[in-house]
Simulated assay, not measured.
Amino acid sequence: MDTITHTLFGLTTYGAINKKEKDKQTKRALLFTALAGSQAPDLDVVARITETGRVMDQMWHRGLTHSVFIAPIWALLIYLVVFLIWRKKDKMIFYLAFVNVLIHIGSDALNAWGTGLFEPVSSMRVTIGVIPIIDFVVWGIFLTAYIIKKLRKTIPTYMVWRVAWILVFIHVGAQASQGLIIHEEARSEYEQTTLTASFLPGHFTVLAKEGNEVLIYDQSLWSKQDEPAVIPSQEDEDLTPLFDENPRAEVLITWSPFVVVTNQDGKLGVYDPRFNRGGGPMLFEYIDISD
């Protein structure tokens, strides 16, 4: 998810806590905890660790720092930082940090970019693709809750945010159910498939690879694009020169569910068909072979 959404997750989980019996310093500690937990996994972008000597954000970002095995370590680190600053030992601090880290990595796994959810045990990228990277429905739920909180002063604030979170889980559950049904249908027809969620709830883009072709079409439970877009993939190309000259290409193949292999316009390369920017592939690794 985007940084704004992760921040909203932190603020609203903090808001969902009944803090009536908490002192001012504890409230500050809890707010810091919620925000730190909601952002901590993305600290990998600061580290800028490299793949084969070159920065490869797709494999590093959302990698080890987004693992479920690292989540309790994040929570413990945040707990220690809070203790050093506020001298608080409230167990709620650890639990709030842990929950926010899990929400962060879980929501990231649900969109098309995926995460290294089980690193270092497995390098597999968990890419479910049932919610968009920016989910305006989630934003809308939180905005509505904020307005209600301001207008209905008699309703406890924590109750407003708890109801908002229930609605968020219902929305995510509905998206996941629809997406998985659509994905299972595609898997029964094609060799390789993956899914990306549209900004419009209940609508998805299905990408399938069959032989030397990648097919792309939009689908919901009640409608399906008649004719898919077809992209040829030159699967018989020898990619050894590409891997030798551009190690990022091999990393991209490892990271992506599948790629399109192309040899045209003097370029031998691979790209992930899920992502486009300005009409061209966003993740495209190639070498110039025009000479």
Score class of each variant (00 low, 15 high):
P72G: 11
K150S: 01
G179Y: 14
M159F: 08
Y190K: 03
W60I: 13
K153Q: 02
A71Q: 14
G266E: 09
V163C: 02
P228K: 11
E51C: 02
E227R: 14
G10R: 10
T5R: 07
R248N: 03
F118M: 11
T26M: 10
N263V: 01
D226R: 12
W113N: 08
V251E: 02
K22E: 05
I166T: 11
G278F: 14
K153H: 03
A208T: 10
V99M: 13
K91V: 12
E245Y: 03
V101E: 08
G10M: 07
T26E: 13
K22P: 01
V260S: 04
I93Y: 09
D218V: 15
E21R: 14
T50M: 01
I166V: 14
R48Q: 09
K150I: 02
R48K: 15
L80D: 02
P201F: 12
L96R: 12
Y95S: 06
F118A: 08
K20P: 00
T115K: 14
I73T: 13
K88T: 09
D135Y: 09
L31S: 02
A229N: 13
T7N: 04
N263F: 03
Q175C: 12
D135M: 08
I128A: 05
F258I: 03
S122C: 04
L76M: 11
R48G: 00
I17R: 13
